[in-house]
């Protein structure tokens, strides 16, 4: 069964129709890259999935749960949205680390706040916090950041910041990771260290959607590629199909203007 199923998603900003009827499906463990030129709706699509934007209509089913239904009149309250957002980990183009906290705190802040909602929190506070910290340290060491745990974001390179951001998202054990152009704000030489981590996650069977301009990377890592153009999914297929044998003229045009 598909872990994520999106049907007829539509979203407009004012008069601009950014998403015109997007449907999409993915299975657990699958890695899907979304490519397309700027303004094609890739980022908006990703943001609609985890409610950073609310779609105008359509339906999103995640792991058997209907998390969004444009037809239902009922407006979701903040708590419901929050629960649904927790199914996803989100990595921003601009990292968005919290500048006043060191690396370790950036990773543990949200899990510790969430732990307060656990019924056994008062009784086991010390143990729960120790567990959260141990897990954070473990993830940070896997990301090669063990020696940076007490540094502040401003003391890190862009690549290191983005790795922290990825660890921060992973610490909450999301079902699906969403990456919004994770390397677009990085110098080329820093791109690889971030891509390596994403590759590592892919090998670990993490379900991921990656909006990216790194064609070579998308080709190497993805099980499937979605090409978006002007608010619709213009073409979708395996990397071999998309890059080797593009069917639509729009994709051919896009690829001919993009360096592989």
């Amino acid at each position: 069964m598909a872990i994520l199923e999106i049907k007829n998603l539509k979203k407009s900003f004012g008069k601009v129709e950014v998403l015109k009827d997007v449907s999409f499906e993915m299975n657990e463990g699958e890695v899907v890259s979304i490519i397309g030129s700027s303004g094609s709706g890739k980022t908006t699509f990703l943001r609609c999935i985890n409610f950073l934007e609310t779609a105008d209509s359509g339906k999103i089913v995640c792991d058997g749960d209907v998390i969004f239904d444009g037809k239902s009149v009922k407006k979701m309250n903040a708590k419901e949205i929050r629960e649904k957002q927790m199914k996803f980990g989100f990595v921003f183009q601009q990292f968005n680390l919290f500048p006043q906290y060191d690396v370790l705190t950036n990773v543990t802040l949200a899990p510790k706040l969430l732990a307060k909602e656990r019924p056994d929190f008062k009784k086991n506070k010390a143990a729960i916090y120790a567990e959260i910290e141990a897990k954070a340290l473990d993830l940070l060491s896997q990301a090669g950041l063990s020696d940076k745990i007490n540094n502040y974001p401003c003391q890190l390179s862009g690549g290191q910041q983005q790795r922290v951001a990825i660890v921060r998202a992973l610490a909450l054990e999301p079902k699906i990771m969403l990456f919004d152009e994770p390397t677009s704000a990085l110098d080329p030489e820093l791109t690889n260290e971030v891509l390596k981590i994403i590759k590592f996650l892919a090998d670990d069977d993490m379900t991921m959607i990656i909006v990216t301009h790194e064609m070579q990377f998308a080709k190497n890592i993805s099980d499937r590629i979605v090409f978006m153009d002007k608010g619709v999914v213009a073409e979708t297929g395996t990397p071999e199909e998309i890059f080797g044998n593009p069917k639509t003229e729009r994709l051919q045009h896009f690829l001919s203007n993009t360096k592989l």
């Binding site: 980990g89 989100f90 921003f92 949200a110 998202a169």
Partner: peptide, 10 residues
């Protein structure tokens, strides 16, 4: 982005 980062972290 600071608000959004907090939001997506629950």
């Amino acid at each position: 982005g600071q608000y959004e980062a907090g939001q997506v972290l629950g």
